[in-house]
Design a protein around this nucleic acid. Structure first.
Lengths: 150, 150
DNA sequence: GAAATATGTTAGTCTTGCTTAACTTTGTTA
DNA sequence: TAACAAAGTTAAGCAAGACTAACATATTTC
């Protein structure tokens, strides 16, 4: 079996996700970048990197750059996918402010079961699909009811 | 000011919620009941009770029963309300199994911002309202699309 | 290329929340 | 009522994750 079931803590998932984001943004990732982005101090990052490296999810040479392993990359993408889906749900469907949507997505992206996140994904797809093609009355009603533009 | 902004941890919110449930079910609440319900050992409960008592959220005499204070009762009800709303959303709208719905609700009930949970509450109300009065076509489509009855 | 600055790591501490083992108190029952 | 069982508490310890202070390595810059 290629990938043994890593049961990562929410915290470690957050670190992985941020590493993936920084890699996308800047190409390379350093302790300092992570520390700034996550509002933690550098020693906390070092400790987290040791933990992730010991699980084979990142590669990290002392004083050097940090990179995701294949396995780590895969996990990070899964988390990010849930995160983005949740953000879309909160913003596009519920009309929550970007700020709250991001914050809430960050917190619950680690807790949803596979079953629930898949079904929620379907809901988002369905609603966005219909929202795109001249919104039917019921979606307008819904948005008004929820108070999207209050 | 009557109630200073208690920023409770997710764990402490769980204890409060369980105390409220047990009080409803049995009338009185003991350490043993909480320990059984939450799958933790009794010393963990004792520690948690000391913490909640020091915050004025419960009353607890040594070797005696546990009861919610007015403030604790209020908080517990708020958590339970979010919990129930989430469970309904997962089950009634998404068609998630009761088991996953309960588990997921338990985990994220502590993390949602006020803004998001209020709007989600509105969504649930809106959809349930329309589901009740001979479900319109779009709701059927939605449920099929999500795969509610797969 | 040496000094100054930026970045990274180590060591030690704190908090939260859990555990086990041992002890105390309360309740039951013969 | 004495003894046993059930429930509660205390003490000690562990693990995750965060922090500060101090030290080590890289990178700039003059």
């Amino acid at each position: 079996m290629a990938s043994q079931k890593h049961k990562l803590s929410a915290n470690m998932e957050d670190y992985l996700e941020v590493i993936a984001m920084l890699k996308d943004e800047k190409g390379v990732v350093r302790v300092k970048d992570i520390s700034d982005r996550m509002n933690v101090k550098k020693p906390s990052v070092t400790a987290a990197m040791n933990s992730l490296a010991s699980k084979g999810l990142i590669e990290h040479e002392r004083y050097g750059y940090i990179d995701l392993s294949v396995e780590g990359e895969k996990l990070a993408r899964e988390v990010k996918e849930r995160h983005d889906m949740l953000t879309r749900f909160f913003m596009d469907i519920l009309g929550v402010s970007e700020n709250s949507a991001e914050t809430d997505a960050c917190k619950i992206e680690h807790s949803l079961s596979k079953e629930t996140s898949e079904k929620l994904m379907h809901l988002v797809e369905y609603l966005e699909m219909h929202a795109g093609e001249r919104p039917p009355q019921w979606l307008k009603n819904l948005n008004e009811y929820i108070g999207k533009n209050k």
